[in-house]
């Protein structure tokens, strides 16, 4: 009855396996997805949940031990003035860094996407990739060298006779400090430098998708270059900017090494978490602190997804 239209080749284990998966394509998909899902699910999500649970415990002030009873008091501590200060400071820094990154990254991305061709395009791409992938610590370290009181910036300033400007900057309240490497200005500069490649690449990816004739069409319809920019290029680049800002914002929000190496003694969220879980042993409050960036980034990702930023990721 069922003389099969087989090609007449020998079977074997390979073919038997292939046949099973051909008959049940969903099975193969499941088997492929299961290991990575288990890994992320158990190792990563599992750990996140463990951390979240800790934030509902509290620290006994006298014994310094963690009390394993459900309480919201740790979140209450988060609202103390000093802690709110830490949060506000960190979020403000993240926002400023993101803004600066977008402003500096845009022309680079725009040039690379629109004008660079052939080898020059490859060069641009590599020139962005190299600093992106080169060592984070090395990059931070480089700025320690640059910003040091005896370093190259001071040297340049004195060479140009602009020492007064540098000193004026450092004399400013809040953002100033004894030297650039102990001031918010310094922290800000390093953050911008270290994260900027993360902003360039998605903007470039978004701009690459804008057909050149859209810009010509806009000009053809009588738009000034600035109108074309605001009505055509900017809206189309926006998903790229949002995608890039996910990185710049999130990375700044959680970083504890840059402000520790270049900055003043006022803590940011990352440093607070680091010292709380380490020397202070207050894991519950550290956990509660990490919930702040988690909530902010959760909201951020949700917004980004709605704006279609994930397409250019």
């Amino acid at each position: 009855m069922s003389t099969r239209a087989a090609a007449g080749r020998q079977g074997g284990v390979g073919e038997a396996i292939s046949d099973v998966f051909f008959a049940r394509p969903g099975l193969l998909t499941l088997l492929l997805l299961l290991p990575p899902l288990l890994w992320i699910g158990v190792v990563y999500i599992g750990s996140l949940i463990a951390l979240l649970l800790q934030s509902f415990y509290s620290l006994d002030d006298f014994s310094g031990l963690v009390v394993h009873d459900f309480t919201l008091s740790t979140y209450g501590q988060l609202l103390e003035e000093a802690n709110v200060g830490i949060i506000v400071r960190t979020v403000a820094m993240s926002a400023l860094v993101t803004l600066a990154c977008a402003l500096i990254a845009f022309p680079i991305a725009y040039y690379a996407a629109r004008y660079a061709k052939g080898w020059k395009k490859a060069l641009f791409y590599l020139a962005v990739m190299m600093p992106l992938w080169s060592s984070y610590l090395v990059k931070v370290y480089a700025w320690k060298l640059i910003l040091a009181k005896e370093g190259i910036l001071t040297w340049i300033a004195s060479g140009l006779g602009m020492t007064w400007l540098l000193e004026g900057l450092l004399a400013l309240p809040v953002i100033g400090g004894p030297s650039l490497s102990f001031s918010y200005i310094g922290t800000f500069l390093v953050f911008v430098y270290v994260w900027i490649p993360y902003m360039i690449l998605p903007i470039q990816a978004a701009l690459e998708r804008v057909p050149a004739n859209l810009i010509e069409a806009s000009a053809d319809l009588g738009a000034e270059p600035s109108q074309t920019f605001w009505h055509v290029i900017y809206p189309l680049a926006l998903p790229g900017i949002v995608a890039g800002s996910i990185f710049t914002f999130s990375l700044t929000l959680g970083d504890y090494i840059i402000p520790q190496i270049v900055g003043n003694s006022r803590l940011m969220i990352g440093q607070a978490v680091y010292t709380l879980q380490g020397t202070a042993g207050n894991i519950p409050l550290a956990a509660a602190f990490t919930v702040v960036p988690m909530v902010i980034m959760g909201f951020y990702l949700w917004m980004a997804k709605r704006m279609g930023a994930f397409d250019v990721l």
């Binding site: 009855m1 069922s2 003389t3 099969r4 239209a5 087989a6 090609a7 292939s18 046949d19 051909f22 008959a23």
Partner: peptide, 11 residues
């Protein structure tokens, strides 16, 4: 010959 159920590599 019945072909339904056969994968492409067996036709």
């Amino acid at each position: 010959a019945r072909a339904d159920g056969l994968p492409p590599y067996k036709r």
